[in-house]
């Protein structure tokens, strides 16, 4: 066949981006030794935002309840720990499993409707979990949060230190591993089908592919990723609060995803890092100024940069390459 039809290899690009995340993480370790708590929270939140990206960015289903899956993973991991499970890797596995089960149920409830009803269902679900967590204080600690988590050294070898170095490296390594696996999945045949479903599920059906099972699998996978993030946050902070299953956290995850660029795993990670980094600086001065900035940014992004701020880099490159003569539609 002619050279034109040779398939470009996408994996090299993924590898470069994965390496960039690793380098950024290592740079943070060196540059911000006193802010590793924040850095770890960024990493665990990246799990939440990436998990949301699978459902919203890839599968095309808007949800304002994703934190329910994150928080349930956190509560599950914390309870496993309080019941005697010390190994952090196993705790993350427990969180991921709980998140997967929750994701499957969440998907089964949400996928029965569409549009506004669907969006309201996602909100109602996260609120339901929030109210239940508040009530079931035996296993959640209620509004005080669940504390007393005591984590053993990773694999019996790496002890969690006072500065949070181990916690951060632990979160970073798991994030890199998760991103690597997800990069393969979104480029796999299943991932291709999923991206198509996100654009036009009806058309995918007429190709002979069932949509609902694929979406349920995606919700389960997404729940697993979110649950792992929740577990990592529980491990590194030692507490699980009600805010981890809140509507606010879900909405903020959506904001981070859209600012970073939905439908791109690395856009989701970049969005999380930039958003939370700026938030910690600006919010320290005045939390409400931060809200104004986020609000205005959202409006600007929706109107002018629909593919997210990280797409601007690509746009600039493309515009330079073709001297502004051609632009993608929309």
């Amino acid at each position: 066949m002619s050279a034109v039809t040779a398939r470009p290899s996408p994996l090299r690009g993924d590898f470069i981006k994965l390496a960039a995340v690793a380098l950024a993480g290592l740079a943070a370790l060196v540059l911000f030794p006193n802010d590793l708590g924040l850095m770890t929270r960024i990493a665990s939140s990246a799990f939440l935002v990436v998990s949301l990206d699978l459902v919203t960015g890839y599968a095309g289903i808007a949800t304002l309840g994703q934190a329910a899956l994150f928080g349930l993973g956190a509560y599950a991991a914390a309870n496993a720990n309080l019941a005697g499970l010390g190994e952090p890797i196993l705790m993350v596995a427990v969180g991921g499993l709980a998140g997967a089960v929750a994701g499957l149920i969440f998907g089964a409830v949400v996928l029965r409707s569409r549009g506004l009803a669907q969006l309201v269902l996602t909100i109602a679900l996260v609120q339901l979990v929030h109210e239940a967590a508040n009530k079931l204080s035996d296993i959640t600690g209620g509004s005080d949060g669940l504390s007393g988590i005591d984590v053993a050294p990773i694999l019996g070898a790496f002890r969690f230190d006072l500065y949070g170095r181990t916690g951060f490296v632990f979160a970073l390594v798991l994030l890199l591993a998760t991103l690597a696996v997800l990069s393969v999945i979104v480029r796999s045949p299943f991932g291709l089908k999923l991206r198509a479903i996100g654009r036009d599920p009806g058309r995918v059906r007429t190709l002979g592919a069932a949509v609902m099972p694929a979406l349920l699998v995606t919700f389960t996978l997404s729940g697993a990723v979110a649950g792992m993030g929740g577990a990592i946050e529980a491990i590194s902070t030692g507490v699980v609060g009600l805010d981890s299953v809140s509507f606010e956290r879900s909405a903020m995850a959506l904001v981070m995803l859209v600012l970073g660029g939905s439908g791109s795993l690395y856009g989701a990670v970049a969005g999380t890092a930039v958003f939370m980094g700026l938030e910690s600086i600006i919010s320290a001065a005045n939390p409400f100024h931060w809200l104004i900035i986020v609000g205005v940014l959202l409006i600007v992004v929706v109107l002018f940069v629909p593919r997210g701020l990280t797409s601007l880099a690509g746009d600039v490159r493309r515009l330079l390459a073709i001297f502004g003569l051609r632009r993608d539609k929309r």
Binding site: A62, L64, L119, A251, L254, V255, V258, L291, I292, V294, G295, V296, L297, L298, I299, V301, V302, L303
Partner: peptide, 10 residues
């Protein structure tokens, strides 16, 4: 959702 939540934030 995004634009109106942005307006609400602002």
């Amino acid at each position: 959702v995004l634009m109106t939540i942005g307006i609400a934030f602002a």
